[in-house]
Simulated assay, not measured.
Amino acid sequence: MLVRHRGREPRISPAATVAPGAIVSGDVVIEAGARILHGAVLTAEDGRVRIGAETVVLEHAVIRGRHDHPAIVGSHVMIGPHAHVSGATIGDDAFIATGAALFPGAVVGAGAEVRVNAVVQVNTTLEPGAVVPIGWVAVGTPAQLFGPDRHDEIWAVQRTLDFPGTAYGVDRSAGMAEIMRRQSAFYAAHDDDVIIGDEG
Rank of each mutant, 00 (worst) to 15 (best):
M1L: 01
V3I: 15
E9T: 13
S13N: 13
S13F: 01
P14M: 00
V18Y: 11
P20H: 07
G21L: 12
G21T: 03
D27P: 05
D27R: 09
R35N: 14
H38L: 14
A40Y: 14
A40I: 07
A40H: 06
G47W: 09
R48M: 04
V49S: 02
V49W: 13
E54N: 15
V56Y: 11
R64V: 14
H67V: 11
H69W: 15
H69I: 06
H82R: 14
S86V: 13
T89R: 15
I90R: 08
G91V: 00
D92Y: 08
D93Q: 06
I96H: 04
G99R: 13
A100E: 14
A101H: 14
L102W: 01
L102Q: 08
A106F: 05
A112D: 03
A112W: 12
V114K: 03
R115C: 05
V119Y: 02
V122N: 06
T125Y: 12
T125F: 07
P128D: 01
G129S: 09
V131R: 05
V132A: 00
P133Q: 00
P133D: 04
I134W: 09
I134F: 00
A138E: 02
A143S: 11
A143M: 09
L145V: 08
L145Q: 02
L145R: 04
F146T: 14
F146M: 10
G147W: 02
D152S: 15
D152G: 12
I154W: 02
I154E: 06
L161E: 09
D162N: 07
D162Q: 05
G169V: 11
A174M: 02
A174F: 02
A174P: 00
E178Y: 03
I179A: 02
R181A: 13
R181S: 08
R181E: 15
S184N: 09
A185T: 10
F186P: 06
F186Y: 12
A189D: 13
H190D: 02
D191T: 11
D192C: 03
D193V: 06
V194E: 15
V194M: 10
G200E: 00
